[in-house]
Simulated assay, not measured.
Amino acid sequence: MDGRVTTEDTAICSAKGCRLPAVWVLAWNNPKLHTPDRRKTWLACDDHREHLSNFLDLRGFLKDVVTLEDWHRSAADG
């Protein structure tokens, strides 16, 4: 995952200057650079989820928005 992590392994929001814990995973890819199945990720707190989602969606990059809990569960399932 591309999101930032503190020394306590707490996922932190990817918004510039934000230090709040992440709650959301925004999965995206740039079709000019990545294969269709590749997923990059940004992490978002509740306050920045809409802003970061809109930024990616306007560029046609946003693929999925899920809770961090669901993202970890999906990764554990394989």
Rank of each mutant, 00 (worst) to 15 (best):
M1T: 15
M1L: 11
D2R: 06
D2W: 05
D2E: 13
R4T: 15
R4L: 14
V5H: 09
V5K: 12
V5I: 14
T6E: 12
T7Y: 11
E8V: 08
E8Y: 08
E8F: 07
E8R: 15
D9Q: 07
D9W: 00
D9H: 05
T10S: 09
T10D: 13
I12G: 06
I12W: 01
I12K: 00
C13V: 10
C13I: 08
S14G: 11
K16M: 13
K16Q: 15
G17H: 01
G17A: 06
G17D: 06
G17M: 05
C18Q: 06
C18T: 06
C18Y: 04
R19Y: 05
L20H: 11
P21R: 12
A22K: 03
A22H: 03
A22Q: 06
W24A: 03
W24P: 02
W24G: 02
V25I: 14
V25G: 05
L26D: 04
L26E: 03
A27T: 04
A27G: 13
W28S: 06
N29F: 10
N29L: 11
N29T: 12
N30D: 15
N30A: 14
N30I: 14
P31R: 12
P31Y: 06
K32Y: 08
L33W: 01
L33E: 14
H34W: 07
H34T: 10
H34C: 13
H34S: 13
T35K: 04
T35L: 00
P36N: 04
D37N: 02
D37T: 07
R38V: 08
R38E: 10
R39Q: 10
R39L: 08
R39C: 01
K40V: 09
K40Q: 14
T41D: 08
W42G: 04
W42M: 12
A44P: 03
A44T: 04
C45E: 06
D46C: 01
D47H: 04
D47Q: 05
D47L: 01
H48P: 06
H48N: 09
H48Y: 04
R49Q: 13
E50T: 11
E50F: 04
E50H: 06
H51Q: 15
H51M: 12
L52F: 03
L52A: 10
L52T: 05
S53K: 05
S53R: 07
N54H: 12
N54R: 12
N54F: 10
L56S: 10
L56A: 07
D57I: 01
L58Y: 07
R59D: 13
R59G: 10
R59K: 15
R59H: 12
R59E: 14
R59P: 05
F61S: 01
F61M: 05
F61Y: 15
V65Y: 02
V66M: 11
T67L: 01
T67I: 03
L68F: 07
L68Y: 09
L68E: 07
E69C: 01
E69A: 09
D70V: 03
W71S: 09
W71C: 11
W71Y: 15
W71T: 03
R73E: 15
R73G: 00
R73K: 13
R73L: 12
S74T: 11
S74Q: 00
S74E: 13
A75Y: 04
A75K: 09
D77R: 04
D77M: 00
D77T: 12
